[in-house]
Computed example of a mutant assay.
Amino acid sequence: MNWYYAINGQRQGPIAQIEFEKLVSTGVINEQTLVWKEGMGDWKPYSQVKAVLVPAGGVSGSVPGTGASNDDTAVCVVSGKSFPKREMIQYEGRWVSAQHRDEFFQRIQQGMAPAGDGPVPGPYGYGGFWRRFWAKFLDGIITGVVSIPAQMLLSALILGTPNYFTYQLDMQASGGLARYFLFQGVSMVVGFGIAIAYCVYFIRRYQATPGKIALGLKLVRSDGADLTTGRIIGRYFAEMISSMTLLIGYIMAGFDREKKSLHDIICDTRVIKTRQ
Rank of each mutant, 00 (worst) to 15 (best):
N2Y: 02
Y4K: 08
Y4F: 15
A6M: 15
Q10H: 06
Q12W: 11
Q12V: 11
A16P: 03
A16Y: 00
K22D: 05
T26C: 05
I29M: 06
T33H: 09
V35C: 12
K37I: 05
G41W: 12
P45H: 12
Y46N: 00
S47C: 08
S47K: 12
S47D: 09
V52K: 02
V54W: 00
V54G: 00
P55I: 03
G57H: 04
G57S: 08
G57N: 07
S60H: 09
G61K: 01
G65E: 02
G65C: 06
G67A: 07
S69I: 05
N70S: 02
N70G: 05
D71H: 08
A74T: 06
V75R: 10
C76G: 05
V78G: 04
S79G: 10
G80T: 12
K81D: 01
S82P: 06
F83C: 12
P84R: 14
Q90A: 12
Y91N: 05
E92K: 11
E92M: 14
E92S: 07
V96Y: 05
S97K: 03
R101D: 04
D102A: 13
E103Y: 11
I108P: 06
M112D: 01
M112T: 14
G116R: 10
P119M: 11
P119L: 05
G122D: 00
Y124S: 01
G127N: 07
G128C: 08
R131N: 06
W134T: 10
A135Q: 06
K136T: 14
L138K: 05
D139K: 04
I142V: 14
G144K: 05
V145A: 02
A150T: 09
Q151F: 07
Q151Y: 11
M152Q: 04
L159F: 07
L159P: 03
L159T: 04
G160K: 02
P162C: 03
P162N: 11
Q172H: 09
Y180I: 15
L182C: 08
S187Y: 13
S187H: 11
G191T: 15
G193T: 11
I196Y: 13
Y198F: 15
Y201S: 00
F202N: 07
F202T: 00
R204F: 09
Q207M: 09
Q207Y: 11
T209E: 03
G211Y: 12
L217M: 06
S222A: 11
D223W: 13
D226S: 13
D226V: 10
T229D: 12
G230M: 13
I232L: 07
S242F: 05
S242Y: 04
S242L: 02
S243K: 04
M244C: 13
T245D: 10
L246G: 07
L247Q: 10
I248Q: 08
G249F: 03
G249T: 12
G249V: 07
I251W: 03
M252T: 09
M252G: 10
A253I: 08
F255M: 15
D256E: 15
H263V: 10
R270V: 15
I272V: 15
K273A: 06
K273L: 07
Q276C: 02
